[in-house]
């Protein structure tokens, strides 16, 4: 479904991605792991079409995203949900209005249907009763949950998660991962999760991609990763 082919990107002469290639099948969830500054978020933004590669391509169902115009990019984004590292909730809107925003602006659903859908989505992420609060009035974990609700409210086919548990305590982080897993079971989206939550994330993903110095160091199942004797991966696992 998502095919990344020889993706290369550099900033100010510094090569961040040096030729990344892999493919994510429909309904699969991949974990993208690697050291900080290794280009994971940059790669994710290429998949979302927020960045243009220097070389290589990102294609989704045979349509190239990396070189497409605004119209086809917009059509692709209709199918996409993105959970930002910091949530990226709109400060001036309540939790309810944040989640309702894409529906109000893009769909022709009635107010009552939107309200019902938003409240149901908030209930799914455990935020019932917090719909009238503003992003500045809720905790980091709640911001992530609200952002997840907003990303999922349009039932996307593809979900991209940029460090969904960063900055959260282990218990809240684990609950976010469980939430992602339950949403995947419900919606069967194709997903890529950029994360440092190793090995916790392995319980909810099909494949793991390890990036190291701008290249794919390992691609395989979580057990391949855990059983690898590669010193870089061992160092990453054992700290």
């Amino acid at each position: 479904m998502i095919k990344i082919d020889n993706l290369q990107k550099s900033f100010d002469g510094h090569d961040v991605l040096k030729g990344i290639s892999f493919e994510v099948g429909k309904g699969q969830v991949f974990a993208l792991v690697g050291g900080s500054g290794g280009g994971k978020s940059v790669l994710l933004k290429h998949v979302a079409g927020l960045m243009k590669p220097d070389r290589g391509s990102v294609t989704v169902d045979g349509t190239e995203i990396s070189g497409s115009g605004q119209k086809s990019l917009r059509a692709f984004r209709e199918r996409l949900g993105f959970l930002f590292q910091g949530g990226a909730l709109f400060d001036s809107l309540s939790v309810f209005d944040n989640v309702a925003f894409p529906l109000k602006e893009k769909s022709k659903l009635s107010r009552d249907v939107i309200r019902e859908k938003v409240l149901m989505e908030l209930e799914n992420v455990g935020l019932s009763g917090s719909e009238h609060r503003y992003p500045s009035q809720i905790s980091g974990g709640m911001v992530k949950r609200a952002a997840l609700a907003r990303a999922l409210v349009e039932d996307p086919e593809i979900m991209l998660f940029d460090e969904p548990t960063t900055g959260l305590d282990p218990v809240t982080g684990q609950s976010i991962l469980k939430l992602i897993d339950s949403c995947h079971r419900r919606l069967s989206f194709t997903g890529i999760i950029v994360t440092h939550e190793i090995p916790k994330v392995f319980a909810i993903v099909d494949h793991v991609i390890m990036l190291h110095q701008g290249l794919v160091r390992l691609e395989g199942t979580p057990s391949d990763f855990m059983e690898s004797h590669d010193p870089v991966i061992q160092a990453f696992l054992n700290g």
């Binding site: 917009r74 993105f82 930002f84």
Partner: peptide, 17 residues
Amino acid sequence: GIMRISEQIDALELMGL
């Protein structure tokens, strides 16, 4: 500017808006 650095503008773009 704050909307830019807190990725709120990216969020708008990714909603197809």
